[in-house]
């Protein structure tokens, strides 16, 4: 499902080169749950962005669902993300002025699918936040926010879920709930690439990759 072939990425800031990834390769099959661990600043988020078609690597290739998103135009790549990829961010990044339902429905602005609403309600029900459906993110607990973010990532029925420390801000119980859902997504045939610090969280994965600082 995800095939990363020898990608390298070097950031340039203030005229200085910051090499982050070099010759990184990774393969995730459908149904596989892969966790990435490593020191802060070693390039975990960078790897996720590159895998999600948001950050073009300097060299190497990224293949998602058989296609290289970086060979597409910017507009087509956006649509590609909307159809194949789900993102969960560490800081959730819910849209502050949309309630839970609208946040979950947000991906349908990019790519409208007919059962978006019923699917959103299903996901909300599934993640146990139905009673919070009309609340704004500011009115939710951290765990509820992360579940909303997860529901949003799954609305488009992605083939690849990219999660950047989805449990980083959660207490053990909330974290466990979120991890269960991610596990479930993989069991249902989805591919998951999850960044985490947490050894416990990594323990849920089929495979753990240790990313070293370059």
């Amino acid at each position: 499902m995800l095939d990363i072939r020898q990608i390298s990425k070097t950031y340039t800031s203030n005229g200085k080169n910051v090499p982050v990834l070099s010759d990184m390769s990774l393969r995730i099959e459908p149904g596989q749950f892969v966790a990435v661990q490593g020191q802060s600043g070693c390039g975990k988020s960078t790897l996720l962005l590159a895998a999600g078609g948001l950050l073009r690597p300097d060299s190497g290739q990224v293949i998602v669902a058989g296609d290289d998103p970086y060979k597409l135009s910017s507009e087509a790549r956006a649509d590609f993300r909307a159809t194949h990829i789900g993102f969960v961010f560490q800081q959730f990044h819910l849209i502050p002025y949309l309630d839970v339902l609208d946040n979950v429905l947000a991906p349908s602005m990019a790519h409208n699918f007919p059962d978006a609403r019923s699917h959103a309600l299903e996901l909300i029900e599934h993640f146990g936040i139905t009673d919070r459906i009309g609340h704004l993110p500011g009115e939710l607990s951290t765990g509820e926010r992360q579940r909303t973010a997860l529901a949003r990532a799954l609305l488009n029925r992605p083939k690849l879920l990219l999660a950047d420390e989805p449990t980083g801000n959660l207490d053990t119980d909330s974290g466990a709930i979120v991890l269960d859902y991610i596990r479930e997504f993989a069991t249902d045939g989805g591919a998951v690439l999850m960044v985490t610090h947490d050894a416990g969280a990594a323990g849920q994965a089929d495979r753990v990759i240790e990313l070293a600082k370059t």
Partner: peptide, 16 residues
Amino acid sequence: TMEIGVLRAIGLSGAK
């Protein structure tokens, strides 16, 4: 800016 980044990540095009 963050909101725009998220919207782009979930698939909204620049035109949108």
